[in-house]
Design a protein around this nucleic acid. Structure first.
Lengths: 105, 105
DNA sequence: TGGAAGTATGTCAGATATGACATAAATTAT
DNA sequence: ATAATTTATGTCATATCTGACATACTTCCA
């Protein structure tokens, strides 16, 4: 993993570095984060395309503006589940999800 | 949604039916569940292809046999996050994940 | 038949994610 | 410039997910 990426993640609050590898992430962890970030970016993109504010999306998914913001900035406390549910709520097709995933990394 | 599917889900412990629609799931809920089930099935498939037992996979991902079983039967208490992490741990590529998703219903 | 290996199900205490709120920072409009 | 709108960040009580354990069920083969 590139150094800048690690720093970006650390700045965002991720605890980068596991017990057995203080230099970085395992390949699986790295892939998982890439996935999450890719989906986050897609979420913001889709929301903007629909001219929707974070507050409006929050209402749509019965959540709050702050949580939507956290999703979009890749806060470590948000789950893939929530991001994917949100994408579906915005009408993302399986194909779109699949594209977002295969294009991550 | 077909009736059998709903019953299958209910039998598995899903609380099918939300406040505003006692007849079934919203389209987004339905899509989300399809997605989850599709990934679950892929997990079992991949594990079997690698001639691995649930116990072995559990050790690989620092979890337990029972949780792996729950993942594979689509237990409502398991998150997409865990399923996806497990698939990645088994070496699934983004392309494989994407296929699993785009082929879900 | 039985017993060993694998899988499923129930439960629980601890860990993590959640919506909600307050408030700060950034962006946009007037 | 500054007010209004939108987005970001911090915190918290509650809800949901977690690994672990016990135990039941299933499969297979000696």
């Amino acid at each position: 993993m590139r150094k800048e990426k690690k720093e970006r993640l650390e700045k965002r609050g991720w605890k980068v570095g596991s017990a057995d590898d203080f230099l970085g992430l395992t390949p699986e962890e790295s892939k998982y984060l890439d996935l999450k970030i890719s989906l986050s970016e897609n979420l913001r993109k889709l929301r903007n395309e629909q001219h929707m504010t974070q507050h409006q999306l929050a209402r749509l998914i019965h959540s709050s503006q702050s949580r939507v913001a956290k999703m979009e900035v890749g806060d470590p406390t948000v789950s893939l589940d929530l991001i994917i549910r949100s994408l579906l709520a915005l009408g993302a097709t399986n194909q779109e999800l699949a594209n977002a995933i295969s294009s991550s990394t």
